[in-house]
Design a protein around this nucleic acid. Structure first.
Length: 416
RNA sequence: GUGGCUGUAGCUCAGGGGUAGAGCCCCGGUUUGUGGUACCGGUUGUCGCGGGUUCAAAUCCCGUCAGCCACCCCA
């Protein structure tokens, strides 16, 4: 009895339809990034574990795919790209004109329990602007993330980008007498406020010398709370993107390293899942790479967004079309005369040389079967190579019309 | 890490102590140069794995592994 193998927990097989879906998403990511003038880069999949310790502390090691290599090095499959980006940008920062507009599409690994929208292996689109202090850079990333959603077929009915400003909270807290050392704790309370009972939040705020009412009033103040929010909002409005944007100061994002505007894209509806998120992190490159450089960026993973695409009618239709197109050919060659095998091969290669994608049957098959296969191949046309060669039949598979045509005119006719 | 649900054909699932089932998919055929429908036929299972109870276990019990979902976390 053969041993049965299956994928490791949290890992996925990509059958052709899955790969087609993934490619569709990658193409959208890449197309929109290019439209914004971003250039693609990539880093190693395996990095020293310390690279991630430095940024996020020791607890993070629990969620890393880490091990010792044969040279006794402590290494990790990358759980994210930002530390790699910080290292790369810092190492050769003099080589590039500022600001850098870099994006990347890659695979990441986290040793976590597998559940909906989350695996141990996933793909992520990362998009960062480095060496730019202007809040217009933040707005540019927000606009880009909105365009990703629109490009996938979503509308204002499906999603919102919720924007906030960590700096506004820091200023508020300091003005209320919160000490520098308590800032991280304070931001965490705000971050968890939505899913924590009010009494508990109140209790924690009291310990910091704050009141829940005061916090609520501050959240109510919205964009008035921050100059950079007002500015980025005005920019997005000028772009005609206002309907997608919502100021929500309750968003601060879990990560400690954000220093300014932060944003998340949420689906509208019961789930309210975050499909993308990011913000400004002006200290991180200095911390990791030793070169002070302001920066902002965001990321979008493949799992939640593809779930959402599949659950939403118009985007799902676009995805399905792409999946079908990727698995189809233009033409199917029907061999109607077994004695014309050489001629069939000649036709096959001649058309492919013209850039036409095609399939044909490798083994002898009844003509009826071949048309069935042609149907399933997604081809729009069938070319029948038979005893009349070099005259061939060109059949339009959708309306079943057929014409006789000289082989030498075939490619040109098909490319019309 | 914690909890709930589920594991039967490639897929979706029914059956619930006594001969292993359906639909879909796949393959072949319906008289040999024309396809989507229809009809006929065919392949596929240690009923997740291990143990226990029983004359008898896919079925009941225990364990284990895996999957899904939620919590935690989310770079």
């Amino acid at each position: 009895m053969a041993q049965k193998f299956q994928t490791l927990p949290g890992f996925r097989d990509f059958y052709p339809a899955d790969c087609a879906a993934r490619n569709y998403l990658f193409n959208v990511w890449r197309r929109v990034a290019r439209r914004y003038g971003f250039v693609e880069y990539e880093g190693p999949v395996l990095e020293p574990t310390d690279l991630y310790r430095k940024k996020s502390g020791n607890e993070i090691v629990n969620q890393l795919f880490c091990f010792e290599d044969k040279g006794d090095r402590h290494v990790s499959m990358r759980p994210e790209l930002t530390p790699t980006l910080a290292r790369m940008a810092a190492a050769r920062q003099r080589d590039f004109k500022k600001p850098l507009r870099w994006f990347s599409i890659g695979q990441f690994f986290r040793y976590e329990k597998h559940q909906k929208g989350r695996g141990r292996e996933f793909y992520q689109f990362n998009c960062d602007i480095l060496g730019e202090e202007s809040v217009i850079a933040d707005a540019e990333l927000m606009a880009l993330s909105i365009d990703l959603m629109l490009e996938l077929g979503f509308t204002a009915d499906n999603f919102r980008i919720r924007v906030s400003d960590r700096q506004a909270w820091v200023s508020y807290a300091l003005s209320q007498g919160v000490s520098e050392d308590d800032l991280t704790d304070f931001l965490q309370v705000i971050d968890k406020m939505e899913r924590t009972p009010p009494e508990k939040t109140e209790e924690k705020l009291k310990a910091l010398g704050l009141s829940l009412d005061g916090i609520k009033a501050f959240i109510q103040s919205g964009a008035e709370a921050s100059d950079s929010l007002r500015e980025s909002l005005a920019n997005l409005e000028a772009r005609g993107l206002k309907e997608y944007v919502e100021v929500d100061l309750s968003i601060v994002r879990g990560l400690a390293y954000y220093t300014g505007p932060v944003f998340e894209i949420f689906d509208i509806g019961k789930g309210m899942r975050a499909v993308a998120g990011g913000g400004r992190y002006d200290q991180l490159i200095g911390l990791i790479g030793g070169v002070e450089m302001p920066a902002c960026g965001f990321a979008m993973g493949d799992m939640v967004i593809l779930d959402l695409v599949r659950e939403t009618t118009a985007p799902a239709a676009g995805l399905d079309r792409a999946i079908e197109a990727e698995q189809s050919v233009d033409v199917f060659i029907v061999g109607a005369d077994p004695s014309k095998k050489a001629e069939t091969a000649q036709v096959v290669q001649a058309l492919r040389n013209e850039g036409i994608s095609l399939q044909y049957s490798f083994s002898e098959m009844k003509v009826g079967k071949q048309f069935q296969a042609a149907e399933q191949s997604g081809a729009t046309h069938a070319v029948i190579v038979g005893s009349e060669f070099p005259e061939v039949g060109l059949k339009d598979l959708s309306d079943r019309s057929e014409e006789k045509i000289a082989f030498e005119d075939l490619a040109a006719t098909l490319k019309r």
